[in-house]
Computed example of a mutant assay.
Amino acid sequence: MNPVANFMEQQSLYERIGGDAALRQLTDKFYDQVFEHELISRLFKTDKDLIKEKQRLFLTQFLGGPQLYSDVYGHPMMRARHMPHTITEDDAVAWLQCMASAVSELPLSKELKDELFDRFPRTAFFMVNS
């Protein structure tokens, strides 16, 4: 096997996209859109800095980095945490559109952008509860 390919397979997606710096950039770009989005901004009305920080911690863990979210908040239990909010399929689509836009702005290869974005649709639709 190619040693470079083997090394890349051993690295988490978190590491391959650039770790914490990339996730900070992603969450900033993502929430710039979400907080202004006519359909889904209603879901994000509490402390905006805290929302962004929780997302960064979750994404770190979700993408194979350190278990930062669990260290601070316990098991993610994302569906249970989102259950108090009415989330429709249209909300999931809007969330994914904002994420796709944010991912597209990262200084990554098309392959890494695609791999990163591909992690989100299943989770977004899992949050639908109405």
Rank of each mutant, 00 (worst) to 15 (best):
V4T: 13
V4Q: 14
A5V: 10
A5I: 10
F7C: 05
M8P: 01
G18A: 08
D20M: 10
A21H: 13
A22R: 13
L23T: 12
L23R: 15
L26A: 12
K29I: 01
V34Y: 07
F35A: 04
H37C: 02
H37L: 02
S41C: 09
L43C: 11
K48C: 05
I51F: 06
K52W: 04
Q55C: 11
R56S: 08
R56V: 03
F58C: 03
L59R: 05
Q61D: 10
F62P: 02
G65Y: 12
S70T: 15
G74H: 04
G74T: 04
R79C: 00
A80W: 01
R81S: 03
M83Y: 13
P84T: 00
T86N: 04
E89Y: 02
D90G: 04
A92D: 03
V93N: 08
V93A: 09
A94W: 00
W95T: 02
W95V: 07
L96C: 05
C98N: 14
S101F: 12
E105T: 13
E105A: 14
S109D: 13
K110D: 15
K110G: 11
E111A: 15
K113R: 15
P121L: 03
T123I: 12
F126R: 03
M127P: 00
V128R: 00
N129M: 05
